[in-house]
Design a protein around this nucleic acid. Structure first.
Lengths: 220, 220
DNA sequence: CGGTGTACTATACACCGTACGTTATAGCTT
DNA sequence: AAGCTATAACGTACGGTGTATAGTACACCG
């Protein structure tokens, strides 16, 4: 007899273990390939066991996102405020690059979780102590946040594309099919665009643009 | 007899018809709920009929995205360059708001398609004629593009969340559970953040920040 | 020792994308 | 007009998904 598979002992599972394992799996196999069944298998458990800890898959996604947001470092207190802003934004970007699934989770899940609030608190505090009024601080926070999210998600996306030979080749041939008569500037700058896509320099360039604009507008 | 369902006539389908119907469906039922089977049913056709025109679902997504990018308006020639930039970015945002699936497609599919190149050509041309060198133009283009994408995706996301009563209530209770001792600034600015999330003003604020920064750095 | 709550399991359903092989027809050639 | 061929649409099937529902066995408490 195939030995009616010994029942797994009683408390092998916990929210923390599930979240951690889910995160590991997403990074190992890619966020899109992640499935509850795969996660359950990895944990040596039936798929439905997960529902004791999470109402559904999206609920688990939220938990993973908050788990990751906890890793965004605190604002360093000893810097001037523009460098504090830089520090927070770079920290966020670094974390997204290290955990690409975070980009996906931030982009496709509604906002919630204490750790997300913690990060917002840090950045908002910096902006207020820089002398911005409530409305400007809120607007600036949203601007910075969406810039970081957009720029870094795009960077991750492009990196993934470069890694996939099929999609990379498709892009190359599309580019080469563009007549320099129709799209002179794109053709002229193709190499430049490819070279400057992603990377610390590109990210900092946009960030500095925002900070420079902010300083121009700031009440001295 | 149930009449062995009359075979659909020979040339009912075409790439254009499929793309248009797919787009309609995505906007009617939501991008996530879109499926090839549903699309085929809408067209009165078996699911496999679609594979005559598209290699797979992703291929269809790419076609839909390019179809939408064709609707980004051309750069108005009579304006000063900063207003040209504003015009392109706002046009892109408007299109994304009108077709929320575009945000999703741009964020999750690799770059390709002639229409995408057309849009890039317009913006790059403006930047070059503003006097930016090749590298700066490329960097600025990427910055603007990722800002528009990030800001508008976020806006769409938040709007969707507000529409879903379940998720909206969850956010409210999370916010209310934040002690103003732990997160004083978030609590203080909660109303402000909610009020300033999304909308033309918020988008233009960030865009103006970028343009102001650009002007500071630009060789006069 | 018996009862109760609950952590895990089993089964099942309704879907999904798509590989593979088949069929019928539109249009060309003769 | 007859026949051939290319191909548009089809049917079937496979392996996967999330999760509703009902069941089971263990830990703990009286």
């Amino acid at each position: 007899m195939p030995a009616s598979r010994a029942r797994t002992p009683r408390n092998t599972l916990s929210s923390e273990l599930i979240v951690q394992t889910a995160l590991d799996l997403m990074e190992a196999k890619g966020t899109d390939a992640f499935s509850l069944r795969g996660l359950a298998a990895e944990l040596g458990v039936g798929p439905m066991a997960l529902y004791t800890y999470f109402r559904n898959k999206d609920d688990l996604y939220d938990a993973v996102r908050d788990h990751l947001m906890a890793l965004v470092p605190a604002v360093p207190q000893e810097l001037a405020w523009p460098d504090q802003v830089r520090s927070v934004c770079r920290g966020m970007r670094a974390l997204m690059l290290q955990h690409p699934c975070l980009a996906q989770l931030l982009g496709s899940r509604p906002l919630s979780g204490h750790e997300t609030a913690r990060v917002a608190e840090g950045l908002l505090g910096v902006l207020r102590s820089a002398g911005l009024d409530a409305e400007t601080a809120a607007r600036t926070h949203t601007t910075l946040f969406t810039y970081v999210l957009g720029a870094t998600s795009w960077e991750i996306q492009m990196a993934a594309e470069r890694r996939d030979p099929d999609s990379w080749r498709r892009l190359r041939t599309t580019m080469e099919s563009l007549s320099s008569h129709q799209y002179p500037t794109v053709v002229e700058l193709a190499a430049e665009l490819a070279r400057t896509t992603g990377g610390d320099e590109q990210f900092d360039y946009g960030l500095d643009l925002l900070l420079a604009g902010l300083e121009v507008r700031r009440p001295s």
